[in-house]
Each structure stands twice: as structure tokens, then as C-alpha cells.
Computed example of a mutant assay.
Amino acid sequence: MRTLGFLSFGHYQPVRDSRTLAARDALTQTIELAIAAEEIGIGMATVRVHHFARQASTPFPLLVAITTGTHRIEIGTAVIDMRYENPYAMTEQAAVADLISRGRLQLGLSRGSQDVALRGYEAFGQVPAKGMSDSDMAVHHTAEFRRVVAGQPVASTDPTAGPVTGPSVEPYSPVLTERIWWGSSSTRASAAWTAERGVNLMSSALLSEDIGRPLDELQCEQIDTCRKAWRSAGHAYTPRVSVSRSVLPITSDERPTLPVRAGCGDVGEYRAAPQSRRLAQPDPRRPPDRPPSAPGQSSSAGSRVEAGVPPRRTSALSRARCCAGPLRIPRSPHA
């Protein structure tokens, strides 16, 4: 395993027991969490992008804010719904964030999940062409974004303004093209599709191939499929693969006794999770202090990656004011 990261959805809602009552709470706590995560050695801080919901939306201002208080942790998205995006405006924003962060941006893209708004992307000015579905539009936007972010010309020069050369979008951030990911949350076939196009793979905890097998086994097969397709395509660099797990932190003795609010992202939702969202149960014959496989051995079915934070360093998390309080961001020496 190369690195361990976290994903924040940026939920906020003025309800009982919420520690993020408003958008400002969610945004400032995400920044503080990223700073604390870097202190204990976490390698990546990512945010989810949702529109028309009380969650994180446009990601780049938040990611840039994280860079002002951090120096090493990678920043990124998991994922941006490409149905909503203008590829050219997004290229400018992504390049700015990557240059300010000194090359720490990892961009996770995808078709996105079901929206609260009916055809909400149309309100953002993105309307599928005739005969094109919204998923097709997301794929088209992604392909165009990758072309533009690589520095390809996107327009014709006005002859009265200077030499006739096709201008490209500025600023330009070299090698950002190798730090683009595709959120493949559906099938093994989509993992092959991702590899064939030369982007890194994000395998989520929402695999739709629910065939009665544990999540970790399905993910291992998905990763194998991606790596084989990548080798067959002959891409010039080595891909990265990420896997995710849903974690419900128990922060106090009262937390397990709180009422279950099914449908609100609380414990009830996960109790009813299908087999494809659960890990295989550990072998009771295996000693608890031995991992089932060596770290990073995710290329064979059924293998797992286990990681932990040394107990002596967990106190850094308690210094993150993730529940309330003013935002304090230390000055970066790179500023």
C-alpha cells in the first residue's frame, strides 16, 4: 500500500446531534481535518462533489484552502460529476489548484451518482446533444478535459490579434494528465474501460456487481482486470489504484446508543448494506496479529490491505478542531 487517505462528503444539516450545522462548519472542518491528517502521516485528502445538496460542491477553492495549511498531503476529488462540468473552465481551475499545491492534485472524475434535481446538469448549461445520454455527455466532457489539460489548442486565433496559432487554455500544469482518475463503481468491464483510456482507477465501496460475494474479492478482481488491460494498452506510466471503505467513527460512549436514522447516512444504512459492500469475515483460525496477506498484495482475489496508525501518534487527531471552534491555519513556508 502506497498511501492512506480520507474522503469527506462535506455533509451539513441543522439537525440534532449534528456537528456541522451549516456549510461553513463543513468547509472549515474539512480544512482542519486535512491539516491534522497530514500531521499523523495520512497521504491524501479528497472531497466528494454533489450539486443541489447540503454537501461539498465546487471543490477547487476548498482544495486550495487546504494547501495553505499543509505541505505534503495530496489533495483531490472522489469524484467530480462530469455531466455538470465545462471542460475548459474546469481546466483553468484544476491547473491553478495544481500549481498552487506544487503538483499535489489528484483528480477523480466520473459520471456521478443520482441527483436530487431532475436533469440538474441542464441548469448548469450542460445539455446532452441529440442522441446522447447524460452518461455519454460525462464521458465526452472527460475526454475533452483530458485533451485540453494536456495543452492542446481549443480555439482559433483572431488574425487581427497576432500570429494565427491555435491558443490553448492557460495556465498549463505539466504532468497533471497522469494524475487523473476515473471513479469505477460498477463492474469489472468498467475497470477495463478505465485502463484502456490511460487513467488511474478509483474503486469505491459501491460496486453494483452484487453477485453474493464479498466486496474485497470483487475489488481485487476489478483491480486485476484494470492492470491486465493497462499492460495490453501499453501506456507509458504505471497506474495508481485506490480502494475505499466506509467508516463510522465512534467518538463517545453515547454515539452507539443514538437513534438509528435510516436513509440519513447513519448506521441503519450500513446495517442493510448488500454483500457487495461488505468485507469477507476474518478467518477465526488466523492469529489476530497476522495480516491475511502482505501490504500491497492486492493483485490476487481475496487478498486485503491492512493499515493502522501508531497509537503514540493518534493524539494529533484530538488537536484537530473537527467538531467546532475557529479555523486556525498555520502560514505555509512556500507562501
Rank of each mutant, 00 (worst) to 15 (best):
R188A: 10
G234F: 00
F145T: 02
R231Q: 12
R197N: 00
D134Q: 08
A155M: 05
R213A: 15
T225A: 15
L218C: 11
V199E: 00
P128I: 01
A229Y: 04
A192F: 02
E196K: 01
R147Y: 03
T157I: 04
P214E: 15
V175A: 07
D224L: 10
A143G: 11
T165V: 09
L206T: 09
L207E: 08
A229M: 02
S208I: 07
G120F: 06
Q152F: 08
L201V: 02
S204V: 06
A143F: 03
K228L: 02
C226H: 15
S168K: 14
T157G: 12
V149I: 15
D224N: 09
E122Y: 00
L201Q: 03
S203K: 04
P174Q: 02
A129C: 04
A143H: 04
A205W: 07
F145M: 04
H141F: 01
R146I: 12
S168D: 07
C220H: 05
S173P: 10
T177H: 10
W193S: 07
M202N: 12
E221G: 15
A189D: 07
E122P: 04
Q222R: 14
R147Q: 06
R146N: 03
A129S: 07
G125Y: 15
S168W: 10
T187R: 07
D136F: 01
C220F: 05
L207T: 04
S204P: 08
D216T: 15
W230I: 01
P153H: 03
V154M: 06
E221S: 12
E209F: 12
G212M: 09
A155E: 14
L207N: 13
E170P: 03
E217N: 14
S190T: 08
G212H: 11
Y172I: 04
S203Y: 03
A205E: 02
P163M: 05
E217Q: 15
N200R: 00
L176E: 07
V175W: 06
R213L: 12
G151D: 07
D134R: 14
R147G: 12
E122C: 02
M202H: 09
R197I: 00
V149Y: 03
Y121N: 11
